[in-house]
Amino acid sequence: MLSVTLHELKKQMKSIKSIIVVFIIFAVTVGVAAGVKRYAAFIDMQPGNDVYTTGLMLTILFAGPLFTLSLSHNIINEEMKTRTIRFIATKTSRTNIIIGKYLSIVIFWFICLLVSLLLIMIFAHQFYFVRGFSLFSFVTYFIGLTILLSTLIKNPLVTNLLGIFLSIMFTVVGIWSAVSHNILLKIISFITPYHYLFYENTSLFAVGPILISIIFVIISILVMRKRDL
């Protein structure tokens, strides 16, 4: 499992996407913060360091699902398409393959968010530990979903298109259900990470998306065990 994690993590860190992710998170966060500062009087908000947490949260809320689902959509099915997973399966178990690849994406995003927070700290003059952990928890939900989709669907092109569609759908439905008073939407909100984000209890938010992400991974493991490679 560790070898799978390290191999996949090295491959992700060597690619240009890690730099792009950090740059976009940092640039959009600072840009949103600058806009909030400029129009603070119009939106009834006092300018201050909180504008950076607002910018960071909005960046991850809208871009996080898209980045996660589109960048790693083929992490499992690409191996199956090229048949390289057969070779990997001779070295380790299918469970270790799923968990190893899942952990590699988790660590990748942890590094990206950490670097982004350190860069933002230069402007904000403080490190947003609690907000950073909350947003990391939010991203883990979509990491688990990415693993599940890539396990269930064999065609990487389909998972790419589906990932883009789901990232938009989850954002719209997730935010709508979290703020709506409709009973059906409220029930739906419990299976989205947005409910836990807008929930007042921060500890519940931190646990909720991570638990759902683990459930996605468990389902992926069960599917992979029964699949012919």
Rank of each mutant, 00 (worst) to 15 (best):
N49P: 15
G48F: 10
I111G: 03
V21K: 11
T95C: 00
R86E: 12
S116M: 05
I75D: 02
L6C: 09
K14I: 14
R38F: 02
E79I: 04
M13N: 05
V4C: 03
T84P: 01
I25Y: 15
I20T: 05
R86W: 00
A40K: 03
I24E: 04
K37H: 11
T53R: 12
I19F: 10
V4H: 07
F67T: 13
K37V: 11
S70Q: 06
N96I: 07
S72T: 15
V106G: 03
T54P: 11
T5K: 09
E78S: 13
I43E: 07
F42K: 08
K81C: 13
V51G: 09
I97T: 03
F108M: 08
T53G: 05
L6P: 10
L117F: 00
K14L: 15
R86S: 07
L71I: 09
F87E: 08
A40D: 00
I88M: 08
V32F: 14
D44R: 15
V22S: 08
N74W: 09
L61E: 07
I88A: 08
W109D: 05
S70H: 07
L103E: 06
T68H: 04
T59G: 06
L71R: 04
L69F: 03
N49T: 15
T54K: 14
L56Y: 10
I60W: 06
A33N: 04
L71A: 05
V28C: 00
L114V: 06
K37M: 12
M80K: 12
S18G: 01
I98V: 07
K81G: 14
T5C: 13
E79L: 02
A63N: 09
K14V: 15
K11T: 12
D50M: 12
I75A: 13
A33Y: 08
V106K: 08
V28S: 00
V51D: 10
I111S: 00
L71S: 06
I75H: 05
V51T: 15
R94P: 01
I24A: 08
M45L: 14
T29P: 07
L69M: 12
M13P: 06
E79F: 01
L61T: 12
H7C: 10
C112N: 15
F67Q: 14
G55T: 11
S70W: 09
Q12P: 08
F62L: 14
R94D: 03
G48N: 01
I107W: 09
K17A: 10
A40V: 09
A41N: 10
H73P: 11
A27P: 01
